[in-house]
Design a protein around this nucleic acid. Structure first.
Lengths: 345, 345
DNA sequence: CCAGTGAAAGTTAGCGATAACATTTGTTGG
DNA sequence: CCAACAAATGTTATCGCTAACTTTCACTGG
């Protein structure tokens, strides 16, 4: 099917009747190329299906075409999804992703990041939570002038471009989803207080109730910590109330799964007697029965965008970037499954 | 801390008083270097902390220093773990990992693999299940003379080196673990029949019982399919028997989690009235309550070994490799958690 | 004693791209 | 109409390494 030899920049240059340098300029978005030439070159690039040799490029240029990814907890479900999407995007853009795990000892993490900067010479870094809020790491990167993108950061939002979703709105929507199904006794299990998203989700829940003129007793609010265990404890309290809620919105899927488990233990039918919704759309949401209605984070899009931003180089100098341009909010998706359904009053 | 400039092969050559080529030979394990010279060079390499520039190396040599990884289902928990370990190992060996997802349409997958061979020119491939048993993929790789390693393959074991764990022994051990705790009424939920591991695990279960002179009624064997749903159905049958089992060995964690859920619904205390063990040690095992006793696959070791094997080049010509040398069996680990414990007669 | 041999080490010429500088072409105003 | 400068394109050297060839040198045996 494809030609046996891979096309080189020289082949493109000859075919297009220009110099190699001009082709290189077109490929690197150098402005000093006339539109006519650019089109001519791009046509040949398409025709020969030319892709630059990453290694040659890296060897010759000052850029390394390496991007770094710093993650923390490898068992978090979304790491793999983020990683796979990021790797794919990197491949199409001719970058390589160097993946680094944060160490329990923060100093070792910093040492490792410094290595990425000095030895590997990464062109940019992606910081996943919670490392994206670690000030020491941010300082190292800032001082070394390495651009970085943070995913759903919680603090210091003016220090770098960042990508997030609208947790507040998602919580609002998922609560309203319950309301639309006829529920008014809606309880909420708050997430870990140390994470900003817990606040946002709680606030979205509150505002959805308020905008629908629904008042709930304070006992309907339980504090959790994103763990299954904490969800069980919260569920037991909520389900032992005299005036039980008919729906529970847990701030993540783990806690929602715990609610389901406790409810089933008590012989409460889901969703007929109790609707449950979670948040995150982790694997857990479809592995328990009934499947959990939840909110899906746009993880793939986040991964792709973070690579695109770093590859574009538009953030290599932050001094003249408006702080509004730093924020990238992506759309979430409400996913309705069996754990919540029309309330049959 | 570290010197600002990264050492080049030339620096090593000068410092050691030899030519660059000699250094290159030492680094590439070329046999035609005297021991004395080799030691001298290695000493300088250590001293300068020299690491070859991957890009220059790739550009100049016939090897690409790219390895391909073909995976199938991105939501499988172990993909991310395998991937992270593989990436790490690649980094230390100066390789890059190109990750590719199998397409639902097998022809597209094949096309993609051909691309990896022709365009990216990978030095080797890693095939994760179930792609490792796809004959068309194996044929493409064999025909193109690209070495490949398969992870826990099921068939055609003579076609390539492969890495697996002893599912039979693990099942034997986990069953005996239950026996040692005083159980004799031990049921088993078999996994998906299409996967060879199901057979192995079932056989291990049977043999553990037999070697302990335990006889169980045929109703204690239920057929599942590795899904939560199938686990629920099996559990309901097992727990409605007149002579209920006191322990259930499910062939994976999903089905074990389902058993726990059903048991709790029926008010059966775990582990006091019923012990449950799973298999795989997925995230699920620690996210439900009680945590599931299970068998951990040595995923990290598998990933590292697969990279090491391909990087070593020892399988670049299979014609003179004994079939016994193809097999690499790694140790598993029995993990005891709350779902199984000493039976209080 | 020296041609013949083979192991060990060195030399040269790229791999495929870009940086830096050099050159050509185009545009403007006086 | 052309100097004067900017925009567009070309030329050359080089990035760090290895393949392929060449040289050196120690050791044979007739």
């Amino acid at each position: 099917m494809a030609d046996h030899k891979r096309a080189r920049i020289q082949d493109v240059a000859e075919q297009a009747g220009v110099s190699m340098m001009t082709v290189s300029r077109v490929l690197n978005q150098d402005k000093k190329v006339s539109d006519k030439t650019r089109e001519k070159v791009m046509a040949v690039v398409e025709q020969l299906n030319y892709r630059p040799n990453v290694s040659a490029r890296r060897l010759a240029s000052t850029k390394s075409f390496f991007l770094g990814l710093l993650y923390d907890n490898p068992s978090d479900t979304y790491i793999s999804q983020f990683l796979l999407a990021a790797l794919k995007k990197c491949r199409t853009l001719g970058y390589h992703l160097i993946v680094d795990e944060a160490h329990a000892d923060i100093n070792k993490t910093i040492e490792s990041v410094k290595q990425l900067i000095d030895v590997t010479q990464v062109d940019g870094m992606i910081l996943l939570p919670p490392m994206c809020d670690n000030e020491a790491v941010l300082d190292v990167l800032t001082k070394a002038d390495v651009p970085f993108v943070r995913i759903t950061p919680d603090t210091k939002l003016n220090r770098s471009p960042y990508i997030c979703m609208d947790d507040y709105q998602a919580a609002f929507d998922v609560t309203e989803h319950l309301i639309n199904q006829g529920h008014s006794k809606i309880a909420h299990i708050i997430g870990d207080t140390k994470q900003g998203v817990s606040r946002m989700r709680y606030q979205g829940y509150l505002d959805a109730l308020r905008s629908n003129q629904i008042v709930t007793p304070p006992e309907y609010i339980e504090q959790g910590s994103f763990t299954y265990q904490s969800g069980m404890e919260a569920a037991m309290k909520l389900l032992s109330l005299d005036d039980k809620p008919t729906a529970i919105f847990a701030a993540n899927d783990d806690m929602a799964a715990a609610v389901i488990s406790i409810a089933q233990k008590q012989g409460i039918n889901i969703p007929n007697e109790l609707s449950v919704v979670g948040f995150d759309d982790t694997q857990l949401a479809t592995v328990v029965w009934p499947n959990i209605s939840t909110v899906r984070q746009p993880i793939n899009e986040m991964a792709e965008l973070s690579i695109t931003l770093l590859a574009s180089g538009q953030y290599s100098d932050l001094s003249n970037v408006k702080s509004l341009d730093l924020r990238h909010i992506l759309d979430f998706e409400l996913i309705e499954r069996e754990s919540s359904s029309i309330k049959s009053n």
